[in-house]
């Protein structure tokens, strides 16, 4: 656990270092699992960590961590690369693999409901970052020892539907995941709702004012597999989320998540910190 914690602290320190070189930037996704139709601004690079800690009753406590690099290729196309790691108490701290995802907005104007297509490839083993819950995923998956031999190459597809209405965001994600080794398709869902605490901006710069906070909640879980679609033997979570965007600084978010049935972890604690480097290419060119 200590080794992983020190690696985690190192990545946070790196993040803080980057902050010293960066400038004011906008808040990003206010959810952990759900995606909205918000894209990364073209030319911006966001560096973020997303962590999840849990102490399952029948398994060792763990801390899963994902270091995320998100780049806006176009205003309608965002690409993201993740490095995943985890640490399990009394076991080991390991690098578990990587993910590469792409999101595109097929409709170029704002509608009541805005679709986004999401394609992800992941190559992970013993991963505990819980960035999606699909199929019959549940707390029992966490009872074995860390086994890096069990490689999982998976493709994940999502249909993201999202609406912004009177300051609220409503997002619905339908998830399908396939182990490329041949297992059947697994399904899941994630729903999110959020709203900034104030809809108007104050005329002065402020750190603790309501406009810098966004509150919301996520509901996510598995929907079985191709041949056993449904809620049987699936796990589900309800998780309030709070995000705080420091003007000219990083955004931080926390989310206590509550398992909704016996198959779920009773409690998950997620926290994340993100920083956006604006127009990274022109910065590197010195313009």
């Amino acid at each position: 656990m200590m080794a992983f914690l020190s690696k985690f602290c190192l990545s946070v320190a790196l993040l803080l270092l980057m902050i010293a070189f960066a400038s004011p930037a906008a808040a990003q996704e206010s959810y952990f699992v759900t995606y909205s139709h918000q894209m990364e601004e073209p030319g911006n690079l966001e560096i973020a960590t997303k962590s999840v800690a849990a102490s399952p009753k029948s398994a060792d406590s763990f801390l899963g961590n994902a270091l995320e690099f998100e780049y806006g290729v176009k205003a309608w196309w965002t690409t993201e690369f993740y490095l995943d790691g985890q640490s399990t108490a009394d076991q080991s701290s390991i690098f578990t693999g990587f993910r590469w995802e792409n999101r595109i907005r097929p409709l170029l104007q704002e509608h009541w409901i805005n679709p986004v297509l999401y394609v992800e490839f992941e190559d992970v083993s013993a991963d505990k970052s819980l960035l999606e819950v699909v199929g019959h995923d549940g707390v029992s998956d966490f009872s074995g020892r860390n086994d890096r031999g069990e490689k999982k190459r998976e493709a994940e597809l999502r249909l993201i539907l999202s609406s912004n209405l009177k300051g609220w965001n409503f997002s619905e994600n339908a998830i399908a995941e396939k182990n490329l080794a041949g297992d059947p398709w697994e399904f899941g869902y994630a729903l999110g709702v959020s709203r900034p605490l104030s809809l108007k901006a104050l005329a002065v710069s402020c750190v603790l004012c309501r406009e810098n906070f966004t509150g919301g909640a996520e509901l996510y879980g598995g929907l079985g597999e191709l041949h056993s679609f449904g809620l049987r033997d699936t796990s589900h979570y309800l998780a309030p989320v709070l995000q705080w965007q420091l003007p000219g600084g990083p955004a931080m978010k926390i989310s206590p998540g509550f398992g909704l049935n016996d198959n779920s972890h009773r409690f998950l604690f997620r926290f994340g910190i993100s920083y956006e480097i604006e127009q990274i290419a022109s910065r590197l060119r010195g313009r």
Partner: peptide
Amino acid sequence: LKNGMPSWSR
């Protein structure tokens, strides 16, 4: 979006 101006609907 085509020309690189993001949407600010958020």
